[in-house]
């Protein structure tokens, strides 16, 4: 009974922390900037051809593939904005001295933070898709929006979870927010892609490398699948969609566990 009661308290504390994080995000410039960038980038693909008088691609999927090509940057930006200093930023600003002695577990703070930052990131991503979707309807027609759009969104969301989880981990591991931000960049722009190239060179399995799967977000449009269709994309360098989902979830869970471990074990 007492354990059950403890859990109930914890759930409520997580909820309070989600609210608290929402309030902080709501009033922070970062969310505004992230949303602004999302709006700007997604509008470019509509406004630039319109203003320069050039033609849109003939195929809607081509338009979608080009447009969603920039989502990768939005994802990384979200990770940096909402994850890279999530834990060590609190140490840095000495707010841990305020919130840690309050009657709540540290893990509760971590969960609340992660959930809210993930929701915020999803919001930013959704803005991008909404605008791109609207543009597609305007240029082509409603039928241009297929289930691939939903799959792409779903995959962006999952991929975002993995990114955010890794940045949370780095943020819990490393004391200095500037360094953890730099490392986030390094991981996703340099380390993962380089590793992938090397592995391909020596013909070693590289299907576990997360960044390989970010291409899904675009590929879904470039090589459209049938509705609820075959598991595999009809593409030359075929990657399994469901494997992508699994890989994302595995990265999310393992990194989050790491972040959890470090936040609750590390002092102050």
């Amino acid at each position: 009974m007492t354990i059950l009661n403890e859990w109930k308290q914890d759930y409520y504390d997580v909820w309070l922390n989600i609210r608290f994080e929402f309030l902080k995000n709501w009033k922070s410039k970062r969310s505004l900037v992230a949303a602004g960038i999302s709006v700007t980038l997604s509008s470019l693909f509509y406004l630039v051809p319109l203003l320069t008088g050039s033609d849109f691609p003939t195929e809607a999927n081509e338009f979608l593939a080009t447009s969603t090509g920039l989502i990768n940057y939005i994802l990384l930006l979200n990770a940096i904005f909402f994850g890279a200093d999530a834990i060590n930023g609190e140490h840095h600003k000495k707010t841990t001295l305020l919130i840690y002695p309050l009657p709540q577990r540290r893990s509760v703070i971590l969960f609340g933070k992660f959930i809210m930052q993930l929701l915020t990131s999803w919001g930013v991503i959704l803005i991008y898709y909404l605008i791109t979707g609207t543009e597609t309807v305007l240029i082509y027609d409603v039928n241009a929006l297929t289930v691939d759009m939903l799959k792409s969104i779903l995959f962006s969301f999952l991929y975002m979870g993995a990114l955010l989880s890794i940045t949370f981990f780095l943020s819990a591991l490393i004391r200095n927010p500037a360094i953890s931000m730099a490392l986030t960049f390094f991981f996703f722009f340099l380390l993962f892609p380089t590793l992938n190239t090397l592995l391909l060179m020596i013909d070693f399995d590289s299907s576990w490398i997360l960044t390989n799967y970010s291409a899904f977000i675009i590929k879904l449009f470039r090589f459209p699948s049938d509705i609820f269709g075959p598991r595999h994309l009809r593409s030359p360098d075929d990657i399994d969609f469901y494997l992508g989902i699994r890989i994302c979830l595995i990265y999310t869970i393992i990194s989050f566990a790491g972040a959890w471990l470090f936040t609750s074990r590390k002092e102050i």
Binding site: K24, E90, L97, L98
Partner: peptide
């Protein structure tokens, strides 16, 4: 002197 959340 702990940090307080400056936006709040």
């Amino acid at each position: 002197l702990p940090g307080f959340y400056d936006n709040l």
